[in-house]
């Protein structure tokens, strides 16, 4: 039994996709090139952030025993979200800022600033002398 779903216009598409969690968006960037491109556009990112549930970092836990650190965030519904440090950055660092609904956090590990995207697990390292020069 094959029913015919209508072709949805781009505007409706975007409105549905911006409601998906980042985890699903990462999966669905494999759907096609258009979707992969769309998810990276500033417009889509802004729309997605506007729709996301805001979360704030409350504490980071040092797991010296396991040589892993866990960042704990608390979201809109008071649920604790735990993120394991995927980079095994065992040196001490401090969180100095977070934005984009808590997805993007900035860490200070003495020699450099790290901008860590919790959703995509991407890490940008910025040497301090460069950061101060900006």
């Amino acid at each position: 039994m094959e029913s015919h779903a209508p072709y949805l216009p781009q505007e409706i598409f975007t409105n549905i996709l911006k409601r998906l969690p980042v985890k699903s968006l990462i999966r669905f960037q494999c759907v096609c090139k258009d979707w992969k491109r769309l998810f990276k556009t500033p417009f889509f990112i802004a729309e997605h952030v506007r729709h996301s549930r805001c979360s704030v970092l409350v504490f980071n836990r040092w797991g010296y025993k396991h040589k892993r650190k866990t960042l704990c965030l608390i979201d809109h519904d008071m649920q604790v979200l735990k993120y394991e440090d995927p980079f095994s950055l065992v040196r001490r660092y401090n969180m100095i800022a977070s934005s984009s609904g808590g997805y993007l956090i900035c860490l200070d590990d003495k020699s450099s600033f790290l901008v860590w995207n919790l959703a995509t697990k991407e890490l940008l390292r910025c040497p301090k002398f460069l950061a101060f020069a900006m």
């Binding site: 072709y7 998906l20 759907v31």
Partner: peptide, 21 residues
């Protein structure tokens, strides 16, 4: 959106008439 969360990539393509390019 809630329904899509549980779908696989190929299910999404089928439902939205999208080709893997």
């Amino acid at each position: 959106a809630d329904l899509m969360k549980g779908m696989t990539v190929s299910q999404i393509r089928k439902i939205f008439h999208i080709k893997n390019d």
